[in-house]
Computed example of a mutant assay.
Amino acid sequence: MSNTIKPLIKVCGMRQPDNIRAVAQLPIDYMGFIFYPKSSRYVDMKRVRTGLMPDLADADMSHATDASQMRHIDRVGVFVDATVQDIITHVVAFKLDAVQLHGSESPTFIRNLRSTIVPDIRPELKIFKAMSIASADDIARCAQYDGLVDMFVFDTKCKGYGGSGMQFDWSLLDNYQGTVPFLLSGGIGPDDAERIKAVSHKRFAGVDLNSKFETEPALKDVRLLEEFIGRITPYSR
């Protein structure tokens, strides 16, 4: 990334409506909502009692994330090995602009998902693929998704699916030769501004911020986020 280009900022793991509204006032590009039931940041849905219609997003959450509240921010739904139908239900209910696949989703699954949603349901939907990184072999696995996804999210490999609060060895990024841009994730915190500014990979698009900016799971410290974003955008070396 050129040192004069603003890195993209994604703040993930949002759930509290008032906190969503506050973070939405910051100069960020993506806001992530986790739809993985085992996550401590899981966003549930309001059940339709008849069981005859798809679940609906909670009314307060829907208001907090509507277009008037988030004019400049894309809504990203995070899923782990969910079914196509489950993803579609959330795309419609939350008016998602992107889905982030954080499990073992295959290239065939991604092709089917895109062909089902685009163009009839959400024509402009973007697909992100999270990759758990601990070695050069993990970077090499990206090749199977090249040209199928719009963005990679490079996260730290751990026993679960993200949320470890730990960083992987960023020197491994030198092994990535693909064409898809990536967001750098995994344990990025308030003290990492200078390290972010030092990342020079041509496919580096921005950062994904989560647990290191929280006072509790799914509740972000807006002041910490604002200060950190101010230190890296715009930046120069």
Score class of each variant (00 low, 15 high):
K220A: 01
F204K: 03
V199F: 10
I188K: 08
S211C: 05
F109R: 12
V76L: 01
S185Q: 09
L96N: 08
R15H: 06
I232K: 08
D208C: 01
V92F: 04
T89H: 13
D97T: 05
M45S: 06
Y145F: 14
E227H: 10
M31R: 01
M1Q: 13
M1H: 15
E227W: 04
V48R: 13
D191S: 14
D221W: 02
D138F: 03
G103L: 10
D138V: 01
S164E: 10
L113T: 06
S40F: 04
E216Q: 12
R231V: 00
A22N: 13
L56V: 13
H102R: 12
S171G: 11
M166K: 15
L184P: 07
F213C: 00
K202E: 15
D221P: 03
H63N: 14
S185W: 06
S200T: 15
R21E: 07
S211M: 03
P234W: 00
S62F: 08
Q85A: 06
R223L: 11
R231H: 06
T215I: 04
S171F: 11
R15T: 00
E227V: 05
T116K: 15
H102F: 10
F152E: 02
E227L: 04
T83A: 09
S200D: 15
S164V: 03
L183D: 08
Q69I: 11
D138K: 08
F182I: 02
V149Q: 13
A93W: 08
S62N: 10
K46P: 05
Q25D: 06
R47W: 11
F228N: 05
I5K: 11
D120Q: 15
M151Q: 09
R49Y: 12
T156K: 09
V118W: 12
N112F: 09
M151W: 08
M1G: 12
D44G: 07
V153K: 09
I121E: 13
P234I: 00
A134P: 08
F204V: 02
V91P: 03
K126L: 13
M70Q: 09
I20D: 00
D155Q: 04
H102E: 09
G178I: 05
I127L: 12
I9K: 02
R49A: 14
D58M: 10
I196F: 07
Y145W: 09
D155N: 03
D120K: 15
Q85M: 02
E226F: 01
P119A: 05
Q100G: 02
T108S: 15
I127E: 12
G147Q: 09
D208Y: 02
L172H: 10
V23L: 03
L172G: 10
R223I: 10
E105T: 05
D44R: 08
I73T: 00
E105K: 13
